[in-house]
Design a protein around this nucleic acid. Structure first.
Length: 213
DNA sequence: ACCCAGGGTCATA
DNA sequence: TATGACCATGGG
């Protein structure tokens, strides 16, 4: 069985197990983008607290974040950790977002151009960029995270030293370029990891593709 | 008390 | 190109 077939079979398996996930958990595309930055190396439960603070302060907007003082914004997002770093990153990102005409302006870029522009913002790396592309801009870009790597490694589909771009290309060439499929697939990988395998790939009760995981 | 979480940047070799 | 230090909170 080729890798492409295995990746498609894996999706079927996860979908049957967990059903649709309807990601990203956010009310608006802007909230998706903020959440994508706040969740960098951070538990989602902590991000929820920060998002909740922003909403309560009526601060979940490009205008607010752009004009807010550093300390003021940092205090609101404190629960998400790395709050000084992430305050700068939010401001960097929102500055870029506004300069480029927000969604009306940015939607004119093709997928790859938009991706390159995102990666040019200090604080936006490949995974954060792809979260934003897939879940805020609805572009067919596959998100690779630590869970994805562990899962592929457990299934022996990779050796472990592959680059981010290599893994992204593997998914994107193996699957139909369907935005909803990509959205669900990444969400299912996270769901699976949180459900059973958050501690690494050695829990004996968990099986995918009839392999121990 | 320790480990980790839905990463990314920067300095160094 | 490839490691390592650094960023920081909250839950298990």
């Amino acid at each position: 069985m080729k890798k492409a077939e295995k990746l498609n079979a894996l999706y079927q398996r996860l979908y049957k197990e967990y059903g649709p996930q309807y990601w990203w958990p956010a009310e608006t595309p802007f909230e998706v983008m903020v959440g994508a930055i706040l969740t960098q190396n951070t538990a989602w439960t902590n991000v929820e607290k920060a998002i909740s603070n922003l909403k309560q302060a009526n601060a979940l907007s490009a205008r607010y974040i752009h004009h807010a003082g550093h300390v003021e914004l940092a205090e609101l997002i404190r629960p998400s950790g790395y709050f000084n770093v992430k305050t700068k990153r939010l401001k960097n990102f929102v500055g870029w977002f506004i300069e480029n005409g927000k969604f009306n302006g940015l939607n004119k870029f093709d997928d790859n151009t938009l991706r390159q522009h995102l990666l040019g913002v200090n604080g936006i790396g490949p995974e954060t960029a792809d979260d934003i592309l897939l879940y805020a801009f609805q572009r067919p870009v596959f998100v690779i995270d630590a869970y994805t790597r562990r899962l592929l490694l457990a299934l022996k589909l990779i050796v472990g030293n592959e680059s981010y771009e290599t893994l992204r290309a593997l998914f994107e060439k193996s699957l139909e370029p369907d935005v909803v499929l990509f959205q669900e697939y990444h969400a299912l990988i996270v769901k699976h990891a949180k459900q059973r395998c958050s501690k690494l790939a050695d829990c004996g009760h968990c099986r995918v593709e009839n392999r121990r995981f």
